[in-house]
């Protein structure tokens, strides 16, 4: 099963995702990978990556460093892949090193990750819920937020399990359908 996880900051998304990945790899008896999506820009970033890598080592993760084109990187591999985070994947591709913006990035990433979901079983995506602060941002920031929503919605549709993390608790959006036999009777 593929899983999409999102939620606000410090609500336990990564811990939940890591535990789930470990459990899934154990059940499937397959390799466990952590797809590190952050592209380090300075020593502080590198130190943080090293710290996280040590933390995960004890859990049995092998690390794949890949901030762009992860579909190509994972195409021929099998296993459970924890992809943390979708947010970083979008910023890596949308905001190019030369300062220009790739406005097609979100649609392209959404399509590629959707295809990856069809060929793989055991993908765990972690994203960030950045949609409820009520702030009116500049055009570029707003385009980024909109872009992430495009990817999130595509993944949520494709994944068998969709989880919102809140205060360390998972809320499963596919477990209990919001369907009503006759919605139109309610209005």
């Amino acid at each position: 099963m593929n899983v999409f996880i999102s939620g606000g900051a410090k609500n336990g998304k990564s811990s939940y995702a890591q535990d789930l990945a470990v459990q899934m790899a154990k059940e499937k008896k397959c390799p466990l990978y952590y797809v590190a999506t952050m592209i380090p820009h300075d020593d502080e970033d590198r130190a943080r990556i090293e710290r996280h890598r040590r933390d995960r080592n004890g859990m049995g993760f092998r690390t794949i460093e890949c901030g762009r084109d992860i579909d190509r990187e994972l195409a021929d591999r099998e296993g459970v892949f924890l992809i943390d985070s979708v947010t970083a994947l979008l910023s890596n591709e949308m905001f190019r090193a030369d300062g220009t913006v790739d406005s097609e990035a979100s649609i392209r990433i959404a399509e590629r990750l959707k295809s990856l979901c069809k060929t793989h079983d055991g993908l765990i995506f972690v994203s960030d819920f950045i949609y409820s602060d009520g702030v009116e941002y500049d055009e570029l920031t707003d385009a980024y937020i909109q872009g992430l929503a495009i990817i999130d919605r595509a993944l949520a549709k494709e994944c068998g399990k969709v989880v919102e993390m809140i205060h360390g608790f998972p809320i499963d959006y596919k477990e209990e359908r919001a369907n009503y036999d006759d919605w139109t009777a309610l209005i």
């Binding site: 999102s6 819920f129 929503a149 999130d152 919102e164 959006y173 209990e176 919001a178």
Partner: peptide, 11 residues
């Protein structure tokens, strides 16, 4: 009825 929509999915 009150529905919260999260990444396109309602609860």
């Amino acid at each position: 009825a009150v529905v919260r929509v999260f990444a396109g999915i309602g609860k």
